[in-house]
Design a protein around this nucleic acid. Structure first.
Length: 204
DNA sequence: CTCCCGATAT
DNA sequence: ATATCAGGAG
């Protein structure tokens, strides 16, 4: 079931995020900005933002106001500016300016939770330590009958048993795109879905 | 569970 | 008008 899902989705979607980034650190910033926000919007903002600052050192030295100004059209921009500055300071002071490659260290960063940590590990470093379960992955997994859990952390535990470890990151990336474009929250586009015939939610 | 927060789809 | 959006912290 899961193998078939991945096989079909791979034909339609790429195994990557739609967030633009050129370094692991840029991905960290983009992921923080993407909370409750659309990727297109984040990309609009990071395009200009990364011209001004794109290293932890630069963000750590920037004032909160400078950062806020660059991202003010995004949701929760004050909190996000604060997180980005704090993360930058921590990376400079405790990680030699590098993004840590463990889920424990990533989760300690303010504004980075389990979902973001998983997303960064796979998409920056190719590491499969967990499955990033966001709203899309949760919704699509439930509709496909892969889990009935309502909480992302619980759903992740169940999904990790169903999906081969080597495919965790890919699975998440593919389900996000399916959820974004086809298996949408409202009015899912069943007729365009590559998983139409194996989805238990359709003939209800 | 509430707050953070603005843009956009419906 | 208002519901929702690639969450996380307190």
């Amino acid at each position: 079931m899961v193998e078939e899902i991945i096989k079909r989705l791979e034909k339609v979607f790429p195994d990557k995020l739609e967030l633009n980034f050129s370094t692991p650190f840029e991905l960290v910033v983009a992921v923080v900005l993407s909370a409750q926000e659309r990727d297109a919007k984040v990309n609009e903002i990071t395009k200009e933002l990364f011209k001004k600052f794109n290293t932890p050192q630069q963000f750590a030295n920037a004032s909160l106001e400078e950062i806020e100004k660059e991202i003010s059209s995004i949701s929760f921009y004050r909190k996000k500016a604060e997180y980005i500055k704090q993360i930058s300071q921590i990376l400079v002071e405790k990680h030699g300016g590098e993004v840590p490659k463990s889920i424990e260290e990533l989760e300690k960063l303010p504004g980075i939770g389990r979902k973001s940590a998983n997303m960064i590990l796979y998409n920056a470093f190719g590491i499969n330590e967990g499955i990033a379960v966001d709203r899309h992955v949760l919704r699509v997994s439930q509709r496909l009958g892969l889990t009935k859990q309502q909480k992302p952390e619980k759903a992740e535990q169940e999904l990790m048993k169903l999906v081969p470890k080597a495919q965790w990151g890919k699975f998440s990336n593919l389900l996000i795109l399916l959820g974004r474009y086809i298996c949408t929250a409202q009015k899912p586009k069943h007729s365009e879905c590559p998983l139409y015939d194996l989805c238990p939610s359709i003939e209800l």
